[in-house]
Amino acid sequence: EPELVFKVRVRTKDGRELEIEVSAEDLEKLLEALPDIEEVEIEEVEP
């Protein structure tokens, strides 16, 4: 069974934007590691 992958769009407080694809596990780590995120948009990517 393929692992869930999420497309994550992040905007930081200083206005930088970042778009990455991460696994569910990595997404959890990412959110814990970035306390200064202003906006996060997450969508599931079809395998």
Rank of each mutant, 00 (worst) to 15 (best):
L30F: 13
E32C: 15
E43I: 15
L27H: 01
L4I: 10
K29A: 09
S23V: 05
R9I: 04
L27N: 00
E46W: 14
E41Q: 10
E46V: 12
I37P: 04
K13E: 03
D26L: 08
V40H: 03
P47G: 09
E32I: 09
D36M: 05
K13C: 14
E32W: 15
K13M: 07
F6S: 01
E17N: 09
L18E: 03
E21I: 15
R9V: 03
A24G: 06
R11H: 04
E28P: 08
E17G: 03
L30R: 01
D14P: 01
D26R: 06
E17Y: 15
G15D: 01
L31I: 05
L34Y: 11
K7H: 07
V10I: 13
E1D: 12
I20M: 10
R16N: 05
I42M: 05
P35D: 13
R9G: 00
A24M: 11
E17F: 14
L30W: 11
E44Q: 11
E3Y: 12
K29H: 05
E38C: 10
D26N: 08
E25T: 12
R16K: 07
K7Q: 03
E44I: 15
E25H: 12
E46C: 12
E21M: 15
E19Y: 15
S23I: 06
F6W: 04
P2H: 09
T12V: 04
R16V: 08
V40G: 02
T12W: 15
R16A: 05
E44P: 12
L34K: 02
E28I: 13
I42N: 02
V10Q: 00
K29D: 04
G15L: 01
V45F: 08
E3P: 11
K29T: 06
R11D: 00
D36E: 08
P35K: 14
E3S: 09
K7E: 00
L30E: 01
V8Q: 00
V10H: 01
L4Y: 09
P47N: 10
E38V: 12
P35H: 13
G15F: 01
E28F: 14
L34G: 03
L18R: 04
V8D: 00
P2V: 08
T12L: 15
S23G: 07
E1S: 13
V45H: 07
D14Q: 04
E3Q: 11
E17A: 07
E25G: 11
P2D: 06
V22K: 00
R11Q: 03
K13W: 04
T12S: 03
R16Q: 07
T12I: 05
V8E: 00
F6R: 03
L18D: 01
E39Q: 10
E21A: 06
I42G: 02
E46Y: 14
L31H: 02
V8A: 02
L31S: 02
T12K: 03
E43D: 05
D36Q: 06
V10R: 01
